[in-house]
Design a protein around this nucleic acid. Sequence first.
DNA 1: CTATAATTCGTTCATATCGATCACTTTCAC
DNA 2: GTGAAAGTGATCGATATGAACGAATTATAG
Lengths: 297, 297
Amino acid sequence: MKQLLTPHQVAKAIGVSESSLKRWCDKGMLATQRTAGGHRRLTIEAVLEFMRESGHEMAQPELIGLPAAVGKGTVVVERASEMLREALIAGDEGVARRTILDLFLAKQSVPVIGDRVIAPALSHVGQCWAEGTLEVYQERRSCEIVSRVLHEWRGLIATPSAQAPRAIGGTVEADPYVLPTSLCELTLRELGWQAESYGTRLPFATLIAAVRDVRPRLCWLSVSYIADEAEFIAKFAELFDATQACGTALAVGGTALHEPLRCQLRYSAFCDQLAHLAAFATSLTSTSSNDSGQVNP
Amino acid sequence: MKQLLTPHQVAKAIGVSESSLKRWCDKGMLATQRTAGGHRRLTIEAVLEFMRESGHEMAQPELIGLPAAVGKGTVVVERASEMLREALIAGDEGVARRTILDLFLAKQSVPVIGDRVIAPALSHVGQCWAEGTLEVYQERRSCEIVSRVLHEWRGLIATPSAQAPRAIGGTVEADPYVLPTSLCELTLRELGWQAESYGTRLPFATLIAAVRDVRPRLCWLSVSYIADEAEFIAKFAELFDATQACGTALAVGGTALHEPLRCQLRYSAFCDQLAHLAAFATSLTSTSSNDSGQVNP
DNA sequence: CTATAATTCGTTCATATCGATCACTTTCAC
DNA sequence: GTGAAAGTGATCGATATGAACGAATTATAG
């Protein structure tokens, strides 16, 4: 099974321009294959060989990796998810980072990678933990690794402009799961929002205060765990009223929000996946020209 | 990813001529990579390392992706803590990052910055929260901001070599405080250890399994909260026995370990501050030639 | 299979960097 | 003061890099 890389991917991975890479290929410094139409294709081995020969310890020698998404088919994404899962179980941060950031370099969006690669991998790890197949520390370590990759990823996304619409969010009360809300933050930042996660276990009352102080255009809530449903419903209603009074949209999501519970809640949008959050956020900015006159470029 | 800098950028950023910079590179004062065509490329990591060693001031840090005022601020530890505290309360991530990274550039070590700047600032924020002077979300937001800065900082410290001694750690059972254990990780990585925090709320049993699987030279435990002291004492004893059997040193610390409780625990070292952890870790590597034959260069 | 969007091709061109050299300043021993 | 040694910044022609362009190729969805 030979994985072929495009010049674009390789150039990004080793931190040079596509032009230079093409020149090196043409000079014979880098073993190159050609497609029928004349496009260059590189094997991982050739690239690693080139980096050894020319002695570069370039940007991220390890970055070019394995799933190497040539294209956006579901096959690539599924394989990436499997690879990430195995890397997380083994505690191999390098492979995990390669897997995720390679997809990013291949121009996959945060929702795609989050919903279809990271979420399934973590879900599988969590299942194994529940079944007792894995040690707890492997599950925690997996979360730590993903958390570090998400932080690094955040640094790769352009800092939003000060005029961009603001968004805040987090998890409430007893919910300790930080990764979903981090992914929400990333999703919105990729869309140009000034999104900032306030972390986990926020009491509803302080979230209401935050909405009143910060006045964001959007507030998201990631709900992976609920201790007391009745109390949750009551306090959630207060939060919703507060957001409405502030002109803030309230988007909710998370595995703990099952159908019968959702029926008892009022919110601006329920987002089953990051893709839904992205779509909802986009709809907000496209209509914001009506009420605020600001359009996101 | 690690972005590579050109000599031009770096020379401007530190305010010297390109000629001098090139000479420094060629003399080996500055770790340099080369492109295939022979052009020099520098990592931010190497530049910061050089500036810390040589004591150069940063003229225009924004040119290499650092916050605009890094290198220009007063590098007084005492004032820094106050500045950080105010920035955290206001939710100003930029100022918080500058404050911390400035000190790092001024050759301050992780323990100094952690013990004398970050800890007091967070402690003050926590106090205000307890008194009701601050909203909860301000405290949580502060922790999120510090967490992000620590992640960025982690990326600026050289990646440890594969031969370096390993260390793992985290918080146990019900303790949700992630920042102290992150600072432990940073402290050890600065000393060249392969340190990895496994996160918060680790059951003792899984920590024992982790020690047995990973066989680290050192295991640290940050204890900021204990739900049931009697249970803690019993399980801690099991962990200690396990670490001893594996040849792993067990370092503990944290505000929840008060004097009378400590008397009932056995451990390799109690570290009141990060400085103590650093000292203990150093003592381990300097004596490790006796029992493992490996010396950290 | 076909239509369409996205990517890569080869080329050109402006700019940046290379190594080497030179004039100048500082330091320091005599 | 003098001269050697060392460091700095500026300059040179030659070469390398990165961005832009229309045209051709590939990937993906219908």
